[in-house]
Measured scan of single mutants.
Amino acid sequence: KYTPEEIEKLKELRIKHGNDWATIGAALGRSASSVKDRCR
């Protein structure tokens, strides 16, 4: 489950890194597949 803060951070990282899920996941301390599924 993602907190509202994590979702905000995810949005920012998505703008910065696009679909680089590995980088976004690492920044959030989550797996690449987890953040990818969250963005769907």
Rank of each mutant, 00 (worst) to 15 (best):
R30A: 07
L10Q: 02
R14Q: 15
N19F: 04
W21M: 05
S34Q: 11
K11I: 09
K1V: 07
A22Y: 02
S31A: 07
G29F: 00
C39G: 08
K9M: 14
A27E: 08
Y2C: 02
V35A: 05
G25C: 02
A32K: 03
K11P: 04
H17C: 01
G18H: 05
S34G: 05
A26F: 05
R30F: 02
D20E: 05
L28I: 10
S33W: 10
V35N: 02
R38E: 15
Y2S: 03
E8A: 14
T23N: 05
D37S: 14
I24E: 07
K1P: 04
E5W: 01
A32N: 01
I24S: 04
S33C: 13
N19Y: 02
I7K: 08
I15H: 14
A22C: 06
E5H: 05
E5I: 05
S31I: 00
T3S: 12
I7V: 12
L28C: 05
G29V: 00
Y2E: 03
R14I: 10
D37P: 01
S31D: 12
I15F: 15
K11D: 09
G29S: 05
C39I: 05
H17W: 09
G29H: 08
V35G: 02
L28Y: 00
G29M: 01
E6K: 00
A27M: 04
E12Q: 14
C39K: 01
E8T: 12
E12C: 04
I15T: 14
N19T: 14
E12F: 08
R14Y: 01
T23A: 15
W21H: 07
A32C: 03
H17Y: 12
A22R: 10
K9N: 09
A26T: 09
L28P: 06
E8D: 12
E8C: 08
L28S: 04
I24R: 01
A27S: 08
L13A: 04
E5V: 09
A22W: 05
K11C: 07
K16E: 10
D20A: 05
E5N: 07
S31P: 11
D20S: 02
N19M: 05
I15E: 15
A27N: 09
L10Y: 03
H17I: 00
K9S: 13
R30N: 03
K11E: 12
I15S: 12
A27D: 05
K16C: 11
G29A: 03
H17A: 01
G18A: 09
K9F: 03
E12H: 10
R40K: 11
D37N: 10
T3Y: 06
G25P: 02
S33D: 14
S34R: 00
K16D: 09
K1R: 04
K36G: 08
A26K: 13
K36R: 14
A27G: 06
Y2V: 11
K36M: 15
D20Y: 00
A26R: 13
T3H: 06
E12N: 15
K9E: 10
E8F: 07
R40Y: 12
I15L: 13
A32Y: 01
I7E: 15
G18N: 09
E6T: 04
I24Q: 08
K11G: 10
G18M: 08
S33R: 13
A27V: 12
D20Q: 07
I15G: 14
R38T: 15
C39W: 13
S33H: 11
T23K: 13
L10P: 06
A26I: 04
S33Q: 15
G25E: 04
E6F: 00
A22D: 04
E12K: 13
C39H: 07
H17F: 08
A22V: 12
R40W: 11
A22F: 06
W21P: 09
E6Y: 02
K11W: 04
L13R: 01
G29R: 04
A32M: 06
W21K: 05
T23G: 08
T3C: 01
K16I: 04
R38L: 13
P4G: 11
L28F: 02
K9I: 01
E12I: 12
W21F: 10
L10V: 07
D20C: 05
L28T: 04
A27I: 09
E5S: 10
T3A: 00
L13P: 00
K9Q: 12
D37V: 09
R38Q: 15
A26W: 02
